[in-house]
Lab assay of single mutants.
Amino acid sequence: MDETGKELVLALYDYQEKSPREVTMKKGDILTLLNSTNKDWWKVEVNDRQGFVPAAYVKKL
């Protein structure tokens, strides 16, 4: 969790967005987890953008 109590995830792999609903991340990025109710796609925030990334590409910290 960060200082505001939000849950964080670590990008395990690079991911290039394939639609406007997704976000690009690089391996090693720390992202804010917004929603993990879907087992396949998690909603995150990175670089002031919100979108989805494959759940298998990130790990909760």
Rank of each mutant, 00 (worst) to 15 (best):
M1K: 14
M1V: 14
D2R: 11
D2P: 14
E3S: 12
E3T: 14
T4A: 13
T4G: 14
T4F: 12
T4K: 14
G5A: 14
G5F: 13
G5L: 13
G5T: 12
G5Y: 12
G5R: 14
K6Y: 14
K6L: 11
K6P: 14
K6G: 09
K6W: 12
E7Y: 10
E7V: 15
E7H: 10
L8V: 08
V9D: 00
V9N: 01
V9Q: 00
V9F: 06
V9K: 00
L10F: 08
L10S: 04
L10G: 02
L10P: 00
L10I: 15
L10T: 07
A11T: 03
A11V: 10
L12C: 08
L12Q: 04
L12G: 02
Y13A: 10
Y13W: 11
Y13G: 05
D14F: 04
Y15D: 01
Q16H: 13
Q16D: 14
Q16V: 14
Q16K: 13
Q16G: 07
Q16P: 07
E17L: 07
E17T: 08
E17Q: 12
E17G: 15
K18E: 07
S19A: 08
P20Q: 10
P20W: 08
P20E: 12
P20G: 08
R21T: 13
R21Q: 12
R21K: 11
E22H: 06
V23C: 09
T24I: 03
T24A: 06
T24H: 04
M25L: 07
M25A: 02
K26D: 04
K26E: 06
K27G: 05
K27S: 07
K27P: 03
K27M: 08
D29T: 08
D29I: 04
D29A: 07
D29M: 15
I30E: 03
L31K: 00
L31T: 01
T32G: 08
L33E: 00
L33D: 00
L33W: 01
L33M: 03
L34W: 05
L34M: 06
N35K: 06
N35S: 11
N35Q: 10
S36V: 06
S36I: 06
S36H: 08
T37R: 09
T37S: 14
N38F: 07
N38P: 04
K39D: 11
K39R: 11
D40K: 12
D40Q: 10
D40V: 13
W41Y: 07
W41V: 02
W41R: 03
W41S: 02
W41D: 01
W41K: 02
W42G: 00
W42L: 04
K43Q: 12
K43T: 07
V44N: 00
V44M: 02
V44L: 04
V44D: 00
E45G: 08
E45M: 11
V46E: 04
V46G: 15
V46Q: 15
N47M: 12
N47E: 13
N47H: 13
N47T: 09
N47Q: 11
D48T: 09
D48R: 09
R49P: 00
R49Y: 05
Q50P: 05
Q50M: 10
Q50K: 11
Q50L: 06
G51A: 03
G51H: 02
G51Q: 01
G51C: 03
G51F: 09
F52D: 04
F52I: 06
V53W: 00
V53Q: 00
P54N: 02
P54Y: 02
P54H: 02
A55R: 11
Y57G: 08
Y57W: 06
Y57Q: 05
Y57S: 12
V58Q: 01
V58P: 02
K59V: 15
K59N: 06
K59I: 14
K60R: 13
K60G: 06
L61C: 12
L61A: 05
L61M: 10
